[in-house]
């Protein structure tokens, strides 16, 4: 994702993969990991944030249409995109983050995993909370978020490993 065009291409690939593959994977009734936020996780920090926010909204909204979820995905996607700089700042010291690409290669394993894991956990928590919208399901929401975010993080990490090799 060094060029805007390649970012667009990968966004479409991620959308299709989410709707037709992950949307049909059913694991133990608890796991439904969302992988398409990988696009926002890898989105370079130096790019225009307003454009990125619009892309996040549109991607989330497209998935909402396939899942009949109103604006649930759009809400979670824009939230993740908005708070992402703070997560990066918490994980990496200020001086290096300005121009750093947010990849496994550039950040190193511990930082990249913390950044991805935190991003995906917040994303899934927000998503499952608004979906259930019930204080009595708090533990179930927490449990499902941690599981799904964990699986999604492993997937993102694996994808990063492969793209490392190909470069």
């Amino acid at each position: 994702m060094r060029h805007p065009l390649s970012a667009l291409l990968w966004s479409i690939v991620a959308l299709f993969f989410q709707v037709f593959v992950l949307g049909n994977v059913q694991l133990f009734g608890y796991l439904n990991p969302y992988l398409y936020p990988i696009i926002f996780i890898l989105w370079p920090l130096s790019w225009n944030r307003a454009t990125g926010l619009i892309v996040a909204f549109l991607m989330g909204f497209t998935i909402d249409f396939f899942e009949h979820s109103g604006g649930l995905q759009a809400s979670a996607a824009t939230l993740l995109f908005m708070i992402r700089p703070w997560i990066v700042r918490a994980v990496a010291p200020r001086s290096e983050m300005e121009s750093m690409p947010l990849t496994l290669q550039a950040m190193g394993q511990p930082k990249f995993l913390t950044y991805t894991g935190m991003s995906l956990l917040i994303f899934h928590l927000w998503l499952f909370w608004w979906e259930a919208f019930d204080f009595f399901e708090l533990f179930s929401i927490l449990f499902r978020s941690i599981l799904s975010a964990g699986v999604a993080t492993v997937l993102v990490y694996t994808i990063q490993l492969f793209s490392l090799k190909s470069e």
Binding site: L53, L72, S75, T78
Partner: peptide, 9 residues
Amino acid sequence: FQSVALVLT
């Protein structure tokens, strides 16, 4: 965006 999304939800 957030308001639109949550209202739609």
